[in-house]
């Protein structure tokens, strides 16, 4: 076994890249050398050969789903995936050569488009697989998702207890915020990575500002509109216990906000790494159906 990490693209010194390049080159040379009496199409002997290769390739690419689910055996799944990617890419060229670059408003072109959709959704998958794992690790910062969720729940409890001692309005703001915090959910929510912890923070800030205004009115004019100035004001000692609690509450809610956006982002990355499969796999089954229709129609109705 190898004592280092290799990605799917450079598996076994990019063996499958070279294989795919060689296959493409062979097909291109054959296509250039072949000069049939009619314009190149699927009906010539080269067309049939390329078509057979492409058809078999599609079936083999489909087998990946089975291979992924059979856990015994001795080959590595990484090698299969590497081959799946490179040979899948080669399929574009072979299919186009097979068709002699002819397209039209017919079943065959529809099948070609289906196949291209599958392949390009696969490209998006490769992009996701290469890009998001690193981002996900960085975002998580060594915490697990369940640990972050636990901490959020705990912050909620503490915030509620704190708000309870301030005033009913603040309490209801915090409670509403807790009830409104939704992480995950439908596909779109997952992909958008939004959480609703902003509203509460804004509410608490407003409450603090209102208090500050009152205090200012009582204690003379003081400049400073921002929350930072207010924190200074609070720290100056003219505040009461409630303001102290409010300040603590802001800390808690800010921390929660940071965590909630982290979790939302985590879910987003995970969703991105999975969503493409929901297109790739059904479309690939449709492609197989298309393949059958293509072959049947060619042999029976041409």
């Amino acid at each position: 076994m190898n004592a280092r990490h290799e990605s799917i693209l450079n598996h076994a010194r990019s063996r499958w890249l070279w294989f795919s390049l060689a296959l493409s080159l062979t097909c291109l040379i054959a296509y250039a050398w072949h000069s049939p009496s009619v314009p190149p199409n699927g009906g010539t002997w080269l067309g049939y050969t390329l078509g057979t290769i492409a058809g078999l390739l599609i079936l083999w690419l489909m087998l990946f789903g089975l291979r992924k689910r059979s856990y015994s055996g001795s080959s590595s799944l990484r090698g299969w995936l590497s081959a799946h990617i490179y040979l899948g890419t080669t399929l574009i060229l072979i299919a186009l050569l097979h068709a002699g670059f002819q397209v039209g408003w017919n079943l065959h072109t529809f099948f070609l488009i289906l196949m291209l959709l599958v392949i390009f959704s696969g490209f998006f998958g490769v992009y996701c697989y290469l890009r998001y794992p690193t981002l996900m690790t960085r975002n998580r910062d060594s915490a697990t998702r369940s640990a972050m969720l636990e901490e959020i729940a705990e912050l909620d409890q503490n915030a509620l207890a704190l708000a309870d001692g301030i005033d009913p309005k603040v309490h209801s703001i915090v409670l509403r915020s807790i009830q409104n915090t939704r992480l995950g959910g439908g596909v779109l929510t997952q992909l958008r990575a939004r959480d609703d912890s902003d509203a509460a923070l804004a509410g608490i800030r407003a409450a603090l500002e209102a208090r500050e205004k009152n205090n200012q009115a009582a204690g003379g004019a003081k400049s400073g509109q921002t929350i930072f100035a207010m924190v200074d004001f609070l720290a100056s000692g003219t505040n009461d216990r409630q303001a102290e609690a409010l300040r603590k509450l802001i800390d808690l809610l800010s921390r929660k906000k940071a965590l909630a956006s982290k979790v939302a982002r985590d879910i987003q990355y995970q969703a991105l790494m999975e969503i493409w499969l929901y297109f790739h796999v059904p479309l690939s089954f449709a492609t197989v159906a298309g393949l059958i229709a293509h072959v049947v129609s060619v042999f029976f109705y041409w």
């Binding site: 076994m1 990490h5 990605s7 598996h11 015994s72 055996g73 080959s75 799944l77 990484r78 299969w80």
Partner: peptide
Amino acid sequence: DEKGGPACVRACPTGAAIRI
């Protein structure tokens, strides 16, 4: 008892898992 070695490593599609 698996002839191909550790299943976790073999089943990793992206080569992220290794044993050393």
